[in-house]
């Protein structure tokens, strides 16, 4: 059986079947906090609306 190789080499250091959530990196905040309140976060970095398709970056 051909051994599966992860596309990204650095992934090899992690055990299989474990979930990883990279932490937030910086504390930049939205200027307009009313808008942020509606958006649901004050951090642009965490603003990831579900668009029903894969989003790059």
């Amino acid at each position: 059986m051909q051994e599966w190789k992860p596309q990204m080499s650095y992934m090899e250091q992690f055990p299989v079947a474990m979930a990883y959530v990279p932490w937030q990196r910086n504390c930049n905040m939205y200027e307009n906090l009313d808008e942020a309140f509606k958006t649901g976060t004050i951090f642009p970095e965490l603003n990831k609306p579900f668009l029903g398709r894969r989003v790059k970056g």
Binding site: Q24, D34, I42, F43
Partner: peptide, 15 residues
């Protein structure tokens, strides 16, 4: 709204 900002900052500061 300010409570919301404080909670977000709280969660960020935890990490």
């Amino acid at each position: 709204k300010i409570d919301f900002v404080l909670k977000e900052l709280n969660l960020y500061l935890d990490t």
